[in-house]
Write a protein that binds this DNA or RNA. Structure first.
Lengths: 328, 328
DNA sequence: TGATTTTTTGCATACGTATTCAAATTAAGA
DNA sequence: TCTTAATTTGAATACGTATGCAAAAAATCA
């Protein structure tokens, strides 16, 4: 009893050589229509499917994309995961999912990715020490930081245009209020958090509006606790800009619990436009990150680097859009 | 220039045979401590890592688990994904993530899993036609339905004890109210939805309490719209039991929008105990699904079937627990 | 120490595919 | 129809690892 049927078996049944079978199943190889039909018929009869491991071994390449993710609690990321998976499927790639608990990717995760000789790597919501990222470069494996940017510009990244977005948000708020505002950052070592503050601060300064910064962690509870701190500091700010939606929701709930009226007493703005932002319980004004465009950018870059590695890196910025709801 | 360093290179440097190198990196093989050290030193110097594809090819097995998922919008599932990934990592397995849009898994997704000769498969929040599931059995690939159960008992499944849970919920509600209640189902073809109704109906009937059933789809919007239908039907039910939390949240928001007081006018109960259920904006009474236990059960079953395939299938039921909050 | 058993090592081979190169077939040209 | 060019096919090989088997080494026993 032979469990797996291989190309040779198909070849025998079809009356051709193993090479021909291989050529039928390998895109871009030349075969006569006649033999193709014979092979396909035989393959179907035997239930043949090419062994992906033998393929990867001989071609020294794989059809697997490594996707590293941390914040599955933030609904933004499952959404991203879904889009990546469906998009790559269209192009014949599968997704190896790697979850990291730490901010920084563990070296054993890297090992996994290298052992599987992944065709490309996407890192979302996590950072990575420089020398680890260089390990991928050394192996000529294209790498994209998604929604994160490294200070060093030698790595490719795809983000929303945070600077522009936060400027627009500040301008919008400045047109409504002039009292002291609050910015709630996420984890301070993230580019997203820093950039969103930068644009916000820039415009407010220009308009002569003060703001106070609170540091949090991109989580609902973080937002909730920060809002409590804000209230216990005594003065209710005219507006709060949270670095992402999920924190903004926490902020709203904490304010409401204390009877603070939104938007009458304080305006709240988030970032991402996750599903929940549109829920009637929140109706959060926010900035929409164009996930689809960002994913497309990432996929296209990876595919082009996979087909021909250049190592050329760029910080891609995609424009998002303002979504006005009931919290402002 | 040779890009990849292989076992032979290491062997040469260490002054041993390729077989010995292989044995050092293969768990359960015998090597002297002395040669092990020599090999490890050489491997480190050269930056050697075993080629996973060659391994899989020769052993005709892989260290990959296929995880098929549909509802990434429901926060319950990202949580599940995270737990599976971390748990399998501990055991040396990686997760190939497959997202399916349809209720039923596509055959090309199956092909992907079979091409990669996955060591095991987990299917969450999606069903699968019988003959497809049989394809896995034919290849002796262990398969688990997670949080779903097929009518046919020839497949392994891991669920929360839905019957018991929904009975307890009904008893709890019956002790508080006697007016007509509502059950909101998810997609009707899911075992979870059916079982949760069954236990609920059983107890209510016994207590002489009427209930009306609305069919929805496990989504927030579905819950929201259903609540609107309930209200437009005229009479406010004494209690609503939604087949999952995310629908319950939609129900709450719809009720509130219409000024219906929870829990004074209507009580609401969900199922899952997702993070959001505990948010101050909701404080939803619900039933907690013990994700960790369910994941452990699944992982243990798969690992044991991987090490020795028996094909023996069972419908495992894990006990959850009632979480009382402010909506009842 | 010498004989015998146990353990470790190396050699050779197999896994299933892609691909080079020469042979064979087909197509084109006259 | 015959020659020549172009295309398709098949045979052989390589990818990097695990493993059966025999040889070598080490350990055990007397």
């Amino acid at each position: 009893m032979k469990p797996t049927v291989n190309a040779k078996d198909v070849a025998k049944l079809a009356g051709v050589s193993q090479s021909s079978v291989s050529r039928v199943f390998f895109d871009g190889a030349k075969v006569t229509e006649k033999t193709r039909q014979k092979v396909l018929a035989a393959a179907k009869e035997l239930g043949y499917r090419p062994n992906e491991y033998a393929r990867s071994l001989i071609t020294n390449s794989s059809k697997i994309i490594g996707l590293v993710m941390k914040g599955v609690q933030n609904p933004f990321y499952p959404q991203v995961l879904k889009q990546f998976t469906t998009s790559f499927k269209k192009h014949g790639y599968s997704v190896l999912f790697v979850h990291t608990n730490n901010d920084e990717i563990q070296s054993d995760d890297i090992d996994t990715l290298l052992n599987y000789n992944v065709a490309g790597v996407i890192i979302t919501d996590a950072s990575m020490s420089m020398n680890v990222a260089e390990a991928f470069q050394a192996n000529r494996i294209p790498l994209v930081f998604f929604n994160r940017k490294l200070t060093s510009s030698q790595f490719h990244s795809v983000c929303c245009n945070n600077l522009n977005a936060s400027r627009k948000i500040a301008e919008y708020l400045a047109a409504l209020e002039t009292g002291e505002m609050v910015y709630i950052s996420g984890n301070e070592d993230t580019s997203t958090s820093r950039e969103r503050e930068q644009g916000f601060a820039e415009v407010l300064k220009q308009r002569g509006i003060a703001y106070k910064k609170y540091t949090s962690d991109f989580s609902y509870n973080g937002g909730y606790e920060t809002a409590q701190k804000i209230l216990s500091a005594g003065k209710i700010p005219s507006a709060v800009f949270a670095a992402n939606d999920i924190m903004a929701l926490g902020v709203m709930d904490a304010f409401r619990k204390q009877g603070v009226q939104i938007p009458e007493q304080v305006k709240v703005i988030g970032f991402d436009n996750i599903d929940m932002a549109s829920w009637p319980a929140y109706e959060l004004t926010t900035w929409e990150q164009p996930i689809e465009k960002m994913v497309d950018e990432t996929v296209n870059y990876l595919l082009s680097e996979i087909s021909e590695y250049t190592g050329r890196a760029r910080a891609v910025e995609v424009e998002g859009s303002f979504v006005e709801r009931k919290t402002t």
